[in-house]
Design a protein around this nucleic acid. Structure first.
Lengths: 349, 349
DNA sequence: ACCATTTTTTGGAGCGCTCCAAGAATTTTG
DNA sequence: CAAAATTCTTGGAGCGCTCCAAAAAATGGT
């Protein structure tokens, strides 16, 4: 690979002049410029190597997005929520002329990824892993963490998940539902976990604030209707697990209403319901979370706890781009009632 | 920002030793190591700055994805096709432990972006702009261009658009359709362009091989049914233009079948049809392109010319990651018949 | 033709790091 | 206990570039 110096030698000029030819051509005499350009062409030199500039200037002109939990970029791109989040981030990046790096973080390489990412700041998908946060702090770059309580010194953005969860339950109990199932999120790879009532270790307050908060909201909503969350089966699946629907229907056939943690999960339920000839909302009501574009297009359209995912992504990007003093934002949610919920009519089957 | 040298000074050791503490801790005596670590902590040094390493090693460990045409990252993320493409790329990146940089390329900054992207290779979304390709070649990095004929020296991957287009038309003429409208892609920002039959400059062979090829396929398919593409109105809209449906219905009310260049466009038509009370496929048949996941979820589900978008993205990433001698791949397409096409029944209105 | 300006070109300094050969310290061996 | 072997630590070199102050060349005015 030829360098500026090589081209300079070939053209009989100095390193600095060649640099000028490429970066501030107006500074160099046209005749000389042409000679240099010819030399560059002859050597197959395609412009100054960004590595050198980088070291000099110290700016990557990029922000990094690190997938939530232990998941990979591809899993983010698969999820409706993840896609909208990335879309929002990319919107802000487009505006700022910044590159968006989707930083890969597999379990063991995650910390290294944070240490080494070629970015000027980053966005951490939610994660209960405190190590990640300290890793990020060490890097001394602006960053923001999503859907995680990380204290007052750290940029964070989250939605009011508790309120959303309460609203979801109120809507359903208001419709007359008394038999629920909750589809929660399993944060580690693996098959679904079924927590039936009465079992010892129920997944409340497991350390992931996103889920905790929503479960707590469900609990509160149920309590308002004199129901106890302890009587409600809770099933945890990884976000896109296609078997979620089957597990729920198999384990909780008596449920007339299913609360989920994401539209994606709700869609899984809908799909399985179609397979089994279970009518939604005839036999069972299903409620999503996030209010992604997909939720409006399902059959039937999903009732869901909507948030502005795109706006959140954009805001997150702006936060790291602007590098202001840390703020903790809590964004509102809104229950969007569509056609996947109705008064209970009949038991399944 | 403290550097290795600063930490070294503070701990009374050399730069090199500090580097070893962070990169090959087993080489340095535990006692010394701890002293260095303490010094690092005291100075708030969070590990060697990647910039330095980068210059030394010369590998970014990242590949860049540059949006097709003149569009921005956000526009890619909005389009069903773009999302699946990026998903495919990210799949390969996950496997390779590589970062995926979504490189921003607005019109004028695009060439600079290619020159400066901090990547080891890149994927160019399709583009008729030959300048981009030479730009990419100058950079001397492995790259692949999508949906573009770029000659034998350049990695390229495309689908067999012509065959797909022919299949789409055959399907519709076989159903008895004689009145078509074509929704094509406008490559420059701006409002839709309507080309009615008999007008001078029709958009055939405009220089963008993706569109050209498909239009050519439509032409061939129509010819097989003794129809001429010169009698078919062609409307060009930017990929996500929501007004596409309205423009088509307003300008070509007699069409019983609408051919599009993407599922996204077809979905636009479907949406507008709902607004106007036009039945699909009762009043008009609509056919998509790409076979994205979305196409299966519309109402009615779309008949579409399917390709393996995710596979294509993955393949593209592998190509630049592997850096083999240039290849030109043409991937197959398959007509997927769903419910958005049927025999013509009645004129609209 | 000469000096004062203005325009061009130059090359040193330094960005932060890792590699590596060589030197220093320590441990082992005879 | 000295010499040999081993383990640690060091600091120069160099990655490719841009900035900048200073030198060189060109230009203009008299």
């Amino acid at each position: 690979m030829p360098t500026l110096a090589d081209v300079g030698k070939a053209a009989g000029v100095s390193r600095g002049t060649v640099s000028n030819v490429f970066n501030r051509p107006e500074l160099v005499r046209p005749e000389l410029r042409q000679r240099v350009e010819a030399a560059a062409r002859a050597l197959g030199f395609g412009g100054p190597d960004p590595k050198g500039r980088l070291l000099r200037d110290g700016k990557f002109n990029a922000i990094g997005f690190m997938p939530p939990g232990a998941y990979a970029i591809a899993e983010v791109m698969r999820s409706p929520y993840g896609r909208e989040l990335v879309l929002g981030v990319s919107l802000a990046c487009d505006e700022a002329g910044t590159t968006l790096s989707l930083v890969n973080g597999t379990d063991n390489t995650r910390f290294a990824s944070i240490r080494e990412a070629l970015v000027d700041g980053f966005i951490l998908g939610h994660s209960g892993d405190i190590g990640l946060i300290t890793s990020a702090q060490r890097r001394r770059l602006p960053f923001v963490i999503l859907e995680s309580d990380a204290g007052p010194d750290i940029n964070s953005i989250k939605i009011d998940g508790r309120r959303g969860a309460v609203a979801a339950v109120r809507h359903l109990t208001g419709l007359g539902h008394r038999h629920f199932a909750i589809l929660s999120i399993r944060r580690t790879p693996g098959p679904p976990i079924v927590h039936m009532p009465g079992q010892a270790k129920r997944p409340l307050l497991a350390g992931f604030s996103l889920d905790d908060e929503r479960l707590d909201g469900f609990k509160q909503g149920l309590a308002e209707a004199n129901l106890s969350i302890d009587d409600v089966p809770i099933i945890e699946t990884t976000p896109g697990d296609p078997s979620a629907g089957a597990i729920v229907f198999d384990n909780v056939p008596e449920a007339t209403a299913i609360l989920t943690m994401s539209d994606w999960q709700a869609i899984t339920i809908l799909d399985e319901a179609v397979c089994r000839g279970i009518e939604v909302p005839g036999h069972v009501s299903v409620i999503g979370f996030d209010g992604t574009a997909e939720s409006a297009r399902t059959t039937p359209p999903l009732t869901t706890v909507a948030q502005d995912v795109i706006g959140k992504g954009r805001l997150a990007a702006r936060m790291v781009l602007d590098n202001q003093p840390p703020r903790q934002l809590v964004l509102p949610v809104e229950l969007v009632v569509r056609a996947s919920t109705a008064a209970p009519r009949a038991k399944i089957r």
